[in-house]
């Protein structure tokens, strides 16, 4: 069954008294407990799409269902933003427990669940630090812990690893896959990185700008295979994607866009 179901999605923004179509006729299906990746040039509406799914923007036309519910009704979505969205004035511990606190979970349960998730992500010794005292990878771990503690069914990530160095990035990709296998989450990730898309996405969606829409969709059997990096098929998949990605980028430079 599809966890994410999007048909004819249209999103307009008002810019300087002009309506601008950020998304037009977007169709997307992503099965339960699978991973999807969206790639596309910047400004093509990727973040907008996630904001609709995360119920941060109620102004859209079309049909959007998450496990059969509208984004407004669904309570099982977690969103990790580009810049992690960690609160600098809260310690690791307080950042992670915030979601439970807002849900009104009893205090003793908050403490034990926070401890569990921090342990799982190897963050327990860092619990008293503030985000500015962490490395990029550690911060990303905290962001993930903060989302997973709510036991979501859908995890949305907006270019989560883009500011990490290559090694940390691969480490985080492995961690994410591990968590995914363990929790049977449905995960939708936005990335700029083609290798990352092939490594993480069972389904890969390519977007173009002007109008912001999905121009191509791939099934990717290589996703989630730790040994896949560097294999012939892996590189082939990357090069196919790259050619489509280029096409999307060219559209972004077309006269209609400027």
């Amino acid at each position: 069954m599809d966890y994410i179901y999007i048909r004819s999605l249209q999103v307009d923004y008002l810019q300087n008294n002009q309506t601008i179509a950020a998304l037009e006729n977007v169709n997307l299906s992503l099965p339960q407990a699978s991973t999807g990746v969206i790639i596309g040039p910047s400004g093509c509406g990727k973040s907008t799409l996630l904001s609709i799914l995360a119920n941060l923007n109620p102004n859209y036309e079309g049909r959007v269902l998450l496990n059969g519910k509208t984004p407004r009704e669904s309570r099982d979505t977690a969103l990790i933003l580009q810049e992690y969205g960690l609160l600098p004035w809260k310690t690791v511990w307080d950042n992670v427990k915030l979601g439970l606190q807002i849900r009104g979970i009893p205090k003793n349960k908050i403490a034990s669940r926070t401890e569990d998730i921090l342990k799982k992500l190897g963050l327990l010794s860092l619990r008293k630090r503030f985000p500015t005292q962490l490395s990029g990878g550690q911060r990303q771990r905290v962001a993930i812990a903060r989302s997973l503690i709510l036991e979501p069914k859908l995890l949305l990530m907006d270019e989560p690893f883009s500011s990490l160095d290559a090694l940390t990035r691969e480490e985080m990709q492995d961690l994410l896959l591990e968590l995914w296998k363990e929790t049977h989450l449905t995960i939708l990730i936005i990335t700029h990185n083609i290798e990352e898309a092939v490594f993480l996405g069972q389904k890969i969606f390519i977007m173009s700008a002007c109008p912001g829409t999905i121009i191509q969709e791939f099934e990717n059997p290589l996703a989630g295979d730790h040994t896949a990096r560097g294999k012939m098929e892996f590189l082939e998949m990357c090069s196919i994607l790259r050619s489509y990605f280029r096409r999307g980028e060219k559209d972004a430079l077309s006269p209609a866009c400027l």
Binding site: A54, N55, L56, R75, T77, A78, L79, L81, Q82, E83, G85, L86, L87, W89, K90, L98, G99, I102, R103, L150
Partner: peptide
């Protein structure tokens, strides 16, 4: 606005927005 979005998506109430975001920030 990232700070506000990150906690809005948790469906925080207005009071919680003041308590966790606006006041400490």
């Amino acid at each position: 606005k990232e700070y506000i979005l990150s906690i809005r998506s948790l469906r925080a109430t207005e009071r919680e927005l003041y308590q966790h975001i606006y006041f400490p920030a």
